[in-house]
Design a protein around this nucleic acid. Sequence first.
DNA 1: GGCCCGCATGGTT
DNA 2: GAACCATGCGGGC
Length: 891
Amino acid sequence: MSSPSSAAAVATAKICFNSQCKEPFPDPPPTRRKGWRLRSGEIAELCDRCSCMFEQGNFCETFHSDDGGWRNCETCGKRVHCGCIVSAPTYVFLDAGGVDCVACARKSLVTAPNQMLSSPMLMSQQVSERKEFPAKSWKPLSGPFFGQWRQSPHMWKMTSAQSDLQQRLSYEFDRPNCIEKLTPGGRYSILAHEKKFENLSERPITSSLNNVARERYVNSKIGIDAASTFGMFHGEDNADGVQDSCRHVGENDSVSTRKAVNGDPCSTSASGANLDVHPNSCVKPATSSAIKEDTSSLGLAAPFQSANDLKEPSRYSNQSQGQAGSPLSKQFYPQGMMDAELQTQIRNGKSRVDNRARSQLLPRYWPRITDKELQQISGDSNSVITPLFEKMLSASDAGRIGRLVLPKKCAEAYFPTISQPEGLPLKVQDANGKDWVFQFRFWPNNNSRMYVLEGVTPCIQAMQLQAGDTVTFSRIDPEGKLIMGFRKASSVSSEQDCQTLKSGNGFSTPPEGDNKGTAKDFKGNPELRNLINTAEQWNCTKLANEGLLQKDGLNARSSQGGRRKGSNLGSKSKRLRIENEDSMELKVTWEEAQQLLRPPPNCIPSVVLVEGHEFEEYEEAPVLGKRTYFTTNRSGENCQWAQCEDCLKWRRLPVDALLPSRWTCSNNTWDSERSLCSAAQELSMELLAELIPCKAGASKRSKVKVETDNVEVSDGLDTLANLAILGEGENLPASQPTTKHPRHRPGCTCIVCIQPPSGKGPKHKQTCTCNVCLTVKRRFRTLMLRREKRQSEKEAETARKQQKQQSNQSPEKAPGGNDPLKIDIGVSNSPQKAMTNDEGISDEGFERRRASESPLKAPQIDLNIQPEREEEPSPKSNSGSMLRLLQDAAT
DNA sequence: GGCCCGCATGGTT
DNA sequence: GAACCATGCGGGC
C-alpha cells in the first residue's frame, strides 16, 4: 500500500489518515491530498491513493466493504455505504424509507421537482457534489432562498424548528468541504437530514474537538462554517451551557448554527439564551425569530461571505481544504473587490441584508428558473445553479446608457457589499460562458441607494435583449460564479420555445409550471394571450369575456414584473407621447375603448370561440363610434350625452343612439331644436359637470379624458379609442388595428410582441407550426376567402353602377367605395404611432408601414412583417394582395 | 453637439 | 407615508 513517492519522503512524512492505509506521505505533500472533513473541522489528509479513491467515490468500497451500513439505492440498486463519515454525503434518505445514492437523488431532483426539491435546501444540497468549497455553502441556510426563492408554501409552513433544521442541514451538507467530492449531492428530505444527523450523533464528541470548533467559529465571521461542519461541534454548545439539551448532534448542530449565524463571537459565547432550544423541540417563536434574522443576514450575502472565508485562509483553509484563492474568490472578488471594506464586513459578521430583505423581496424578482433550466445550465457537470433573482429590463436598463438598475434588496442580498459609490467590478458570466465585468455600484438616493450595474450594454446587446426581457442572476457552484441569464419576453410563446422550451443561450422559462405562485393568468397560457391579442389585431375583435381581458391586462402587470403604468415606454416613445398632448389626455380604458367599437355597417358580428373564449368577430373591421356618457336624471330617465365636435356643446341623446366618431349638432336627429351649433346647450356646464364629472367641464380634449387609473387594462385599445376621438370624424382606419399593434406590455407574449421591434432576430416563420401561427393562419385563411368573395362581388356590382352612373360618379369613387374600409385609406394622421412604438415597433418602421398601408392590406397581418419589407410597393390590386395573403396563410 | 456621469424627480408599490 | 426605482436632466468632458 505504499507508494514510491511517499516512501521517498518518509522522514518528513505524514501518515495517511485512512486507518486501513497508514501510508506515509511527504509533508507537505506534493499534491493536495484532502479527504473528508473531520469532526474537528479539519480535513483528513490522505495519501495519493486514498485521496484518489476518495475523490472517485470508491473509498468506502475499498476500505469499508466489510463494514456494516451498506444499503442499496432504492432507485438504481447500487450499493451505498451509509455507515461512516466518508459516506455520509453520498446518499440520501428517502422520505418513504430507504436511501438513494446521490446520483439518483440528483436525477430525481431534476425530473421530479417538488416542493422540497425546489426548496433552497435542496438546491443547496446539490452543492454537496462540489469538490471545492462553495462560498454559498450555507447560503441557502441563510436565506435568500429560504423564504424568497420559490417560497414554497411547504417551506413557509414549516415550523421555525424545521426551518432551522433545514437550514442547518442545508448548509452542512451543502458544504463541499465536508462532503468533499463524493458523489453529487442529491435531494435531502428533512427526515434524511435528521437521520443523517442521528448517525452522526453516534460519534463521540471530544472536548478538544469542541474547543476547536468553537474557537473556529468564534474567530470566524462565518463561524457557521466551522460550527456546522458536523454535529459533533455541538459539544461546544455544551460549554455554553446548553450541553444538556444538545446531546443530539443534530440538535446541537442546530444550536451551534444559530450561534454561528449570529456572527458575533460574544453572542456565541454568551448566547445561552439563544441556545436553550431543544433540538427536537420546536423553537420558540422569539428565539426563532431572532435566529432567523441572523440567519438571513448571513445567507443573503453568502457568496461573498464565503469569499471572505477565502480571504482568511488561515482560518478557513483548513476547513476548506485549502481552497483559499480558489476560483471562487476570483469570481466573486475581482481584484477591486478584495478590499478592506469587504473584509471588515465579513469579520464583523455584518449582514447587509436583514430578515426583511429576505422576506420582502418583491415576487417579481423571484427567479423563475425551472429545474430544467438549471439542469441545462449546469449540464452534466456537478455544477449547481442557484437562482438568485431576476429582473425585467426597463427601457433604461436596455438602453444605451449601459446601466442596469438592480433591485436594491437583490443587490444587497446577492452582490457584494459596497460602501463607496464607485462600487466594485463584478464578474458575471453569461449563459454562453462568456465573462463580463460590470461595475457594481450605487448612487445615493433619498437617503438610500440605487444599485446599478454599469457597462452592461455589450452584454445586453450580445444577448440581444431589449426592454421587457428578463435577466436572471444565478450563481453556479462550486465555482461560485455569478451567472447572468436571460429570458426573452417572447420566449414563452416563441416558436422555438413553443416546441422545445429550449433555453437557447438564455434561460428561457417555460410558460407554465414554474410560475405557479406568481405568474398565472395568461402568462400561464401565452398562446391564449396570443390568440386574443391576435384577434384584436386582425379583426378588431371584441373579446366577449371582459373578465378575461381584465385578467390579461392585470397579468401584464403582475406576471411581467409589475411594470408600472406608463413606464413601459421607452424614453423616445415617451417623449413622443408627451409631445402628443392629445395622446396624453385621451386615454380610455380598455372597456371604454371596447364600447367605442361599432360593428361595421351592415355587418353582423360572428362569435367565434377560441380556446373557450368568445370573440366577436367582424369580417370587416369595426368602426369606432363617438364616445358618449350615460346619465340618469332624477326622474330615473336614462339618457346619453355627446359633445358636438364643432361647437363643443353637449347634447342629450337617446340611450340607444350610436354615434359616429365625428358627431356634430347637425347629426342630432333626435332633437331638432338642438341640431344646430347655434342652439344653446340644454344644461349648463355646471350641471353637466355634475352629471358627467371630469368630462363636461373640460376642454375639448380633456372632456373625454378618462381617469387613467384603469389604464392598465386599457393599454390595448386606448390608442384605438384615441383614434376615434382624434379621428375628427373619420372612421377608424379599419385596417390599422390589424396591422398596428396596440400598446402591449413588455413581456407580452402575443404574436405581435414576440416579433423583435427591429425586425431582426427570431420571429415566427411562415412555416411556423406553433399553435398560435396555425390558429392565426387558419382563421386568416377563412377570412380571406370570405373577403375575396365579397370583394369580387362588390367589384362587379360597382362596375355595373359605374356604367350606369358614370357621369355622376366621382372618379375616386372606386369600386368598394362604400366599404368602410375604404375610408380608412384617408386616415393618415392618426396617432397610431402611439399604439406601437412603445412596445418596440420602431417608429420608422411604423411610419413606413403606415405610409404604405391600405385598408385592403390590413388583413395582411404578417405579424412577422419587417418594416423594410413594408416599403415594398403595396399591391394596387386587392386581389393580388389577397392572393399573396392566401399564399402566406396557406403555408 | 454628443456623450457620460451622477443626482434628482416623481410615479408606483 | 416611506421606500423603491425608472428615468429625467444638468453639468462636465
